[in-house]
Simulated scan of single mutants.
Amino acid sequence: MKHRIKSAVFVLGLLGLAALAQADALVALKDFVRDVKSGRTDFTQTVSSPDGLRKKISFGTFEFQRPNQFRFAYTKPFEQLIVGDGQKVWIYDPDLKQASSRRMSQVLGATPAALLAGASLERDFTLKPLAPEGGLEWVLATPRQADGSVQSLKVGFKGASLAALEVVDGFGQRSRLDFAGFVSNQAIAAERFRFVPPAGADLIEQ
């Protein structure tokens, strides 16, 4: 009987620790949005097909400055640049020499960029702490206005440090970004969030 009581106390203790970890992740996300005004990090992106059998891995850097300025620069295996200047989102493919742009209000919505670089976290997302997994503490961010392009977003923290972001799109494809060497609140040149199409590039504006 005593052994059962001890086991029950131990299990309840573990559940209590898990609840604390979940609460910590939610606090970490809110603190990140409130306190981190700019940042830079390297990332590894793994995109998995809905059945999990096919994967593509890319590498690059991510920079942002609130509100709504960001820069994803993919370096391997192919170069690609995505820049949000606060008004428009630009996508440039050096191999195709093609640039496209759309108004930020049309594309930002409840996206990973909005989650990380936006200023309206709880207006755009419903937040729910999840159980720790893979050494990280997670928060589920569900878009309040679903448009079909994003099913769910998960943000992972290691302590107070942003560590990962996982997105499931409307087709069930899963994209995970693992961050490394995150530096917060560093000065970032304004030019990093401007894009001028290179001479000779095809330009598509929507």
Rank of each mutant, 00 (worst) to 15 (best):
K2Y: 12
R4D: 11
K6W: 15
K6Q: 12
V11K: 02
A18Y: 03
A19I: 15
A19G: 15
A21Q: 02
A21H: 01
L26Q: 15
L26D: 14
V27A: 14
A28D: 10
K30P: 09
D31T: 09
V33F: 06
V36Y: 01
V36R: 06
S38W: 04
S38I: 00
G39H: 08
T44W: 04
V47C: 08
P50I: 12
D51L: 06
G52P: 05
G52S: 04
L53W: 15
R54P: 03
K55M: 00
K56R: 07
I57F: 02
S58G: 07
T61Q: 07
T61S: 05
F62R: 02
E63A: 10
E63D: 09
Q69S: 04
Q69L: 04
F70D: 06
A73T: 05
E79H: 04
E79W: 04
L81T: 01
V83D: 01
G84E: 05
D85W: 14
D85H: 13
G86E: 13
G86L: 12
G86R: 10
K88I: 08
W90Y: 15
W90R: 07
W90G: 10
I91F: 09
I91G: 05
Y92M: 00
D95C: 11
L96E: 09
S100G: 13
S100H: 10
R102V: 11
R102D: 05
R103F: 11
M104D: 05
S105C: 02
P112N: 09
A113N: 01
A114M: 08
A117F: 07
S120M: 04
L121M: 03
E122H: 04
R123D: 15
F125M: 01
T126E: 08
P129K: 02
L130R: 06
P132R: 13
E133K: 15
E133S: 15
G134H: 06
G135S: 05
G135C: 07
G135K: 03
W138S: 09
V139K: 11
L140W: 12
T142C: 10
P143R: 12
R144N: 14
R144H: 13
R144A: 13
R144I: 14
Q145E: 07
Q145P: 07
S149W: 00
Q151N: 09
S152D: 03
S152E: 03
L153S: 01
V155Y: 01
F157P: 00
G159C: 07
G159A: 07
A160E: 13
L162I: 13
L165R: 03
V167D: 05
V167L: 05
V167A: 07
V168E: 06
Q173D: 09
S175M: 15
L177G: 04
L177T: 05
F179H: 08
F182K: 13
F182C: 10
F182V: 14
V183K: 15
V183C: 10
Q186C: 09
A187Q: 14
A189Y: 05
A189L: 12
E191T: 14
P197R: 03
P198S: 02
D202I: 07
Q206R: 11
